[in-house]
């Protein structure tokens, strides 16, 4: 079971309330899909500048593996207030700990309501359906 302390997008990003801000990352499923279990297959990640205003659903960055570039999509409307710059140099963190050390950006949201996103149970069901 994926962590139930956060919400999920169908495109495999997660959003976790952290005080007045929201941490955003990608799920283990997204990492596995891109890297096929080989963390060395992740090669580049582009993240936004601090201060950028993000619309809900907008692409805030991109990640490249050996065989695919994937958009990173924004779960909430808000302003980027912090970027995990370590990720761009150490993509293996995403494979090792996508839930904590692997956060990508911190956003000051216009609203702390995350009800428009999937809870862990619904996200699990989505992943299970993909496996069929």
């Amino acid at each position: 079971m994926r962590p139930d302390d956060r919400k999920y997008m169908e495109s495999h990003e997660w959003a976790k309330l952290d005080g007045e801000t929201v941490l955003i990352g990608i799920t283990d499923f997204a990492v596995d899909e891109l890297s096929n279990g080989n963390e060395g297959d992740l090669v580049y990640c582009d993240l936004p500048e601090v201060g950028r205003q993000l619309e809900q659903g907008e692409t805030f960055g991109e990640i490249e593996s050996v065989k695919a570039v994937s958009d990173l999509n924004t779960p909430v409307l808000g302003e980027v207030v912090e970027v995990n710059n370590e990720i761009e140099e150490h993509l293996e963190i995403l494979a090792q700990d996508p839930w904590r050390k692997g956060w990508l950006i911190r956003v000051k949201p216009a609203s702390k309501n995350l009800d428009h996103l999937l809870d862990a149970e619904a996200y699990e069901a989505l992943i299970a359906a993909k496996a069929q």
């Binding site: 495109s11 692409t59 065989k67 695919a68 570039v69 994937s70 958009d71 999509n73």
Partner: peptide
């Protein structure tokens, strides 16, 4: 060949 995986 190469792929781009967009939101939809």
């Amino acid at each position: 060949s190469a792929q781009r995986r967009g939101k939809t």
